[in-house]
């Protein structure tokens, strides 16, 4: 006998309540990042250390700008979900909820700040 209601069994999403949604989202973003990150390291690493004019010239070109924007969004979503799992492993109760909120908020602040900077550079200040 399974200690589960018929409705729960029909929905079939287990104790996580979201099924494999989290797992799948991590897989999609992981594969996307595996393709983008090596090129991004080259673009960002080459720009770092340059003068302001050189930096503006780099990130106003379409490819570096779009790649940086994509990496920011995908990497920060990947981080928010990964950090959530880590927090769930080590913390409980209100502390857990607070830390998860902090990780998600931090990821969005980084994303929004980076996209604002990219937009401002691309549109010529």
């Amino acid at each position: 006998m399974r200690y589960i209601t018929d409705r729960k069994r029909a929905v079939g999403k287990g104790s996580a309540k979201t099924g494999t949604e989290h797992y799948w989202a991590m897989h999609v973003s992981a594969v996307a990042l595996a393709f983008m990150v090596p090129t991004f390291i080259y673009v960002f690493g080459s720009a770092l250390g340059g003068t302001r004019d050189e930096v503006l010239a780099t990130f106003s070109r379409p490819f570096p700008a779009i790649l940086t924007g994509l990496v920011l969004v995908v990497a920060m979503r990947h981080f928010a979900k990964g950090a959530t799992v880590m927090i769930e492993d080590y913390a409980q109760g209100s502390l857990r909820r607070g830390l998860i909120m902090f990780a998600i908020s931090l990821s969005w602040v980084i994303t929004a700040t980076g996209l604002y900077a990219l937009a401002r550079i691309a549109l010529g200040n």
């Binding site: 930096v55 503006l56 990130f59 940086t68 920011l72 981080f79 880590m86 980084i110 700040t113 900077a117």
Partner: peptide, 23 residues
């Protein structure tokens, strides 16, 4: 796990640097 959760430090520094270039 450690490397994944430490990486936002570099992102914060990098994004600050990019924002400063824009400003």
């Amino acid at each position: 796990r450690i490397t994944g959760n430490a990486l936002p430090v570099a992102f914060i520094l990098g994004v600050w640097w990019l924002l400063a270039a824009a400003i």
